[in-house]
Design a protein around this nucleic acid. Structure first.
Lengths: 182, 182
DNA sequence: AGTATCACGTGATACT
DNA sequence: AGTATCACGTGATACT
């Protein structure tokens, strides 16, 4: 439907320099002009929106650690809390200087076996979701660990708070001479 | 350019049931048919891609804490490491049950002063970038804090490591009955 | 030839 | 009427 919209924009009419005073023609020209301006404005707005979104996606791509983009990344199950402290884990390597993808090409190997997949938008968004989940779990685990440590410390330190400077702790520090009933 | 592409798809021709054997017509019909199928396939592919991207963006929206979506969010400077442990900070409230945006409307207030902005794609992506940066800083700060605590603990515990199980620590743990030489 | 990617322009729609 | 949002279809393009 709306098959009459693709009229060649009447530029050929306008260039027909007679500029005849036919009111119908003039009206049509004006209407077309108006539509043209509105259309172009609309296109500009849309292009800005598009660029903004793309810019943000590119920014996301720079934030997720590069090792998350490279391999096939087997869609880690969202409840992998155990692996959080695994040393060869993909986060916090640096996250400020990344990206690049230089690939000094020597042979035309298929990009699949090279491990570089050029980072689709879909890929980037998928990895962003994954990364946020990972970071959230990491923060949570660290908070737990922190609480444990704080509590363990408080065991030593609460004496200090209650009774002035902790002598027992000092004893612990110089532990070669402690005496203790069983 | 390409103003001849919008031909009405020849459905009117095909319905002209004569099915005349004109080879030119038949060829044109076949070509159109082929183009139509390719176009529709292409559209389906593109729609799938679009849906995937939109799904991921919606997923991101569920991950970022809702308080980051609501207010005007003054584009926090990326070097705000000091505020990381500020208690009224936008992360880790729950992050599993969020979103919603119910807004039991009473008066037609302008959405700007209501603090609900309906979450554009651009908004979601912007906030995702912000949130990842925030989480990265938080993880880093927590790691530092953890190292401090571990070290502080090691001051007390290195004795234990040297001389077997720490008895003194057990005394500390049951600290209400401890006897202690002034 | 099939199956992806992307940017683009456009109509529908909403808020100002 | 201006300024946004969105989904859609389409051509260009690439890899298989």
């Amino acid at each position: 439907m709306t098959s009459l919209k693709d009229r060649p924009s009447s530029s050929s009419l306008r260039d027909e320099k007679g500029m005849n005073g036919d009111p119908v023609t003039k009206q049509a020209i004006l209407a077309n002009e108006k539509r043209r301006r509105r259309r172009e404005s609309h296109n500009a707005v849309e292009r800005r929106r598009r660029d903004n979104i793309n810019e943000k996606i590119s920014e996301l791509a720079t934030l997720i650690p590069e090792c998350m983009l490279d391999p096939s990344a087997p869609v880690s199950s969202p409840t992998a809390t155990d692996e959080i402290f695994n040393p060869n884990n993909p986060a916090l390597s640096d996250s400020t200087a990344s990206q690049a993808k230089k690939e000094t090409s020597e042979e035309p190997t298929t990009p699949l076996e090279a491990g570089v997949v050029k980072a689709n938008k879909g890929m980037i968004l998928r990895k962003s979701v994954e990364y946020i989940r990972y970071l959230q779990q990491l923060v949570s685990a660290q908070a737990n660990r922190n609480r444990e440590l704080e509590q363990a410390l408080s065991v030593y330190r609460e004496v200090d708070d209650d009774e002035g400077p902790c002598r027992r702790c000092r004893v612990c520090a110089g532990a070669d001479t402690y005496t203790y009933v069983q």
